[in-house]
């Protein structure tokens, strides 16, 4: 960190302010101004044109009674929990790769982990949408070929209503109400996150081979090694990915928009808060109300971020 410079020198170096003016312009214009505008317009009834009407807190009163929104918060809660559990395979694979003796093998597996990143995320999503296709989709084909569908159908008819999985009709993963949430969770199986695996591996790097040898001599089991040697070392990374993941999940609605459409799929089962905001703005033309929803969402995320900054210290 540099020391403050004298006023005389600062006056001489005034041109430096021109440097910061450029990025400052961008963030003031395209980040702060829209944010302020969102706050302002959340008090208006506004269809996106010039006509707007001040309605005070009506938008927020409407939010209190908006069951779609509150249901969407329940769904996003479920998805957050699911996404947190989905970190486990990445940690598992990172530890596995790290424990290999051959550096060459480690290098090649790392490359294989990164390989899916060369395909745009959207393409991976669309391939999964294809996997879910009722008639041609590989998921249903797989269930039929392996006869797992009969197991599912038996399970369904024994313990549940028996109308979700049937042997006489293809499973419509993305259009059957009760299957939408499971489909939103299943996609991406086995949920190996390239970025996650790479940063866990970076964290594990600091364990020397001696530690393992000592542990082996003491007869420490593989799981104990994980618990006492490996997990503590990647805890910082895990906490970091965890909080980014939670905030990211709360904001995201691209997945739902692409898989299920603007309405959140059959019965609105796949509706998440971000998508509801998008829907109110660009489908229902209620821009004022959409701004209010955005603010509520912002508020939730802000609380989480503050908690995060308070309890999760990231040393770099």
């Amino acid at each position: 960190m540099q020391k403050p410079i004298s006023t005389a020198k600062a006056l001489r170096e005034w041109r430096l302010y021109l440097f910061v003016a450029v990025p400052l312009f961008f963030i003031l214009m395209f980040q702060y101004f829209p944010a302020a505008s969102a706050v302002y317009h959340s008090f208006f009834e506004w269809d996106g044109d010039d006509t707007k009407r001040f309605i005070g807190l009506d938008n927020f009163r409407r939010i209190l009674g908006d069951t779609t929104l509150w249901n969407s918060f329940i769904l996003i809660g479920i998805l957050v929990v699911a996404n947190v559990l989905k970190l486990v395979p990445s940690i598992f694979i990172a530890v596995m790769i790290h424990r290999l003796k051959s550096d060459r093998a480690q290098y090649w597996y790392r490359l294989l982990v990164v390989l899916p990143m060369i395909v745009p995320q959207l393409v991976v999503l669309f391939i999964w949408k294809f996997f879910f296709d009722p008639n041609l989709g590989p998921l249903n084909k797989f269930l039929e070929t392996t006869r797992l569908i009969e197991v599912l159908a038996w399970f369904d008819s024994t313990f549940f209503a028996g109308n979700t999985f049937r042997t006489d009709a293809p499973i419509a993963w993305l259009s059957q109400e009760q299957l939408i949430v499971p489909a939103l969770i299943i996609w991406g199986f086995p949920w190996i996150g390239a970025v996650g695996v790479l940063i866990y591996l970076a964290g594990l790097q600091s364990i020397s081979k001696d530690v393992y040898e000592a542990a082996d001599l003491d007869g420490v089991s593989a799981f104990q090694k994980f618990l006492y040697i490996e997990l503590p070392l990647i805890m910082t990374q895990v906490r970091l990915t965890l909080i980014l993941l939670i905030i990211g999940t709360l904001q995201s609605f691209g997945l739902q928009l692409l898989l299920l459409g603007e309405g959140g799929g059959a019965g609105g089962r796949g509706m998440v808060p971000g998508l509801w905001m998008y829907n109110q703005a660009f489908v229902a033309n209620e821009f004022g109300y959409a701004c209010a929803i955005g603010l509520v969402l912002f508020f939730f995320i802000l609380i989480l971020t503050v908690i995060n900054n308070k309890y999760v210290r990231v040393d770099k």
């Binding site: 430096l16 963030i27 904001q251 905001m277 969402l297 995320i301 802000l302 971020t305």
Partner: peptide, 29 residues
């Protein structure tokens, strides 16, 4: 390069954006 007058304030202006989720901005943007 230097610690100019207002450097700290401007830095805070940038860093505060890390707290702001982009999702609420889409409609006004």
């Amino acid at each position: 390069r230097y610690k100019m007058p207002f450097s700290n304030f401007l830095w805070a202006v940038f860093l505060f954006l890390m707290l702001m989720p982009g999702v609420a901005n889409i409609v006004p943007l």
